[in-house]
């Protein structure tokens, strides 16, 4: 009888081990899980209108080793700029743009750590509801990521937005957009806040209106030249940010109001 009991226990134990192994290997095999080594982490996204009228998607991707080095080493701007790269594609939609970039970079893009989404003023004027809806429905993009409207091109903004007091770009975007806690001059608007305001009947969406060195879309050509000649010239200049109302329906009107008030 003892022998039978032992056999039954052993049988149950073997079944348990077999089931556990099947479960563990089926779910956690190398193909099923995205490891850190296989992912490219997007720190910021930029949306512009291209010259052909299509969407121009720019992704600022962190280079993990550079990010690590810069955190322990010096904080010069040249090293900081090397810690991220900006990739730009022309596409019809957000997802097609991401797929397009995925097709030529060696790693899979991961949007989980995206800290800021930048829309160019030009694109914002034509309405950004579709893009915001797409992003909020993407499970990787966190609803707590910040939204920013850029007076210059979003691509230009991402390329030239250089942190002075931060080593990590992601940390910089997180702290910079939340500077309202210290100053009260801006408003930290997250993707969820903006999205909710788009559909709420009692509020209007708003976002930070930012710029690099006060650059407007029209000034970029000149600025690009100066950046090309002497990138250090941007070092001593602060990015400006102000709060302005934006909405899907009345975006243009609001931006015009801003211009009037700025003047």
């Amino acid at each position: 009888m003892k022998g039978i009991g032992f056999t039954m226990k052993a049988k149950k134990f073997l079944i348990f081990i077999l089931c556990s192994l099947v479960t563990i290997f089926s779910i956690t095999n190398k193909k099923a899980v995205n490891t850190i080594d296989e992912s490219a982490y997007v720190v910021a996204m930029g949306f512009d209108t291209s010259t052909s009228g299509k969407l121009q998607l720019s992704l600022q991707i962190a280079i993990p080793s550079s990010e690590g080095n810069s955190s322990s080493g010096s904080s010069s701007n040249s090293e900081q700029s090397a810690s991220t790269i900006v990739n730009t594609v022309e596409c019809d939609s957000v997802f097609s743009g991401i797929t397009l970039i995925n097709s030529y970079i060696s790693k899979k893009l991961n949007l989980s750590y995206c800290k800021v989404v930048v829309f160019s003023e030009e694109l914002a004027t034509s309405g950004i509801e579709n893009y915001v809806s797409t992003l909020i429905n993407d499970i990787e993009v966190r609803p707590t990521c910040h939204i920013l409207i850029s007076r210059c091109d979003a691509k230009y903004f991402l390329e030239n937005s250089k942190p002075m007091l931060e080593n990590l770009s992601s940390k910089y975007y997180e702290v910079e957009t939340s500077s309202e806690k210290n100053t009260g001059y801006t408003k930290a608007v997250t993707l969820l806040d903006f999205y909710n305001s788009l559909y709420d009947s009692f509020s209007q969406p708003c976002a930070i209106l930012g710029s690099i060195n006060g650059a407007n879309a029209g000034d970029i050509e000149d600025n690009q030249f100066s950046v090309g000649v002497n990138p250090q010239s941007l070092e001593n200049l602060n990015s400006i940010a102000s709060v302005e109302s934006e909405s899907s329906d009345s975006t243009q009107r609001n931006i015009e109001n801003l211009r009037t008030s700025s003047i």
């Binding site: 079944i15 089931c19 099947v22 779910i27 193909k31 099923a32």
Partner: peptide, 26 residues
């Protein structure tokens, strides 16, 4: 699958849940 295991096949996840229920019932 959508959130955590984007490259896993559906049936493996389904089976892993059912396996637990079967063992529990036994």
């Amino acid at each position: 699958i959508f959130i955590y295991f984007p490259q896993s096949s559906t049936w493996t996840v389904l089976l892993s849940f059912l396996l637990v229920a079967i063992i529990a019932n036994k």
